[in-house]
Design a protein around this nucleic acid. Structure first.
Lengths: 107, 107
DNA sequence: GGCACAATTGGTATCTTAGCCAAATATGCA
DNA sequence: TGCATATTTGGCTAAGATACCAATTGTGCC
């Protein structure tokens, strides 16, 4: 793979990798409907340590998927782009396709 | 996070994680345009060991993204779904958005 | 200043992933 | 049968990801 093509796929992979975790998918999903959430709200939803959630948010921010804003002692996160929902539609159709194949194997 | 919601995000994460690698993105991209490719062709494009490529393909297959067919001594892989291209469109728009932000910082 | 709350960061243990080489398996052909 | 090619799998090691606790930073309030 030449270096230009590699750079292209690495850039894509970084973004995709940022979403490749259940907790981070919950965050993206939640932000897409709620608009914005502070770290403490997300922490309660996810149910793990706040330090862990903060690191997940840092990953999403590093990939450019979310942006943050500090208001008072809280930090609010929101999606930078809405198209991530299309993304999920595609993932769901893969899941549906897989489920169908599973059924055909049983039938 | 309740177990049902967790299961939903884990299923999604598995699929997304399967694409979260430059070599696997090249494979998906290539299959989306070429239709199908054997392991040796993909190995040459990627430029790493065939055993490595074979493992990447196994990851994609495990997530239900590709299917394989053995013909002769070769194994051909192809995409199970075409919608993965929409997927890339979204990733590209995140990249474009990031690039724009970078420029604004410089200006 | 001193305390409480929100969030991030350092440190560390643990698990997973990725890569290579070598070995095993499968197919085609002489 | 024997050899070459295509692919997968086992074994190993290095690198990366994840989670927790503890410590630190920043803000608001008394």
């Amino acid at each position: 793979m030449d270096s230009k093509r590699l750079a292209k796929y690495e850039a894509r992979a970084k973004i995709i990798k940022a979403m490749a975790h259940p907790a981070r998918l919950l965050i993206v999903d939640e932000l897409s409907t709620a608009g914005e959430r502070c770290v403490c709200e997300l922490t309660e939803m996810i149910g793990s340590d706040m330090s862990t959630v903060s690191r997940h948010l840092a990953v999403l921010k590093g990939a450019g998927l979310v942006e943050d804003e500090k208001r008072g002692q809280m930090v609010f996160y929101r999606l930078r782009l809405k198209c991530i929902l299309n993304f999920f539609d595609c993932v769901e159709s893969v899941l549906a396709c897989n489920a169908k194949s599973q059924q055909e194997l049983l039938a």
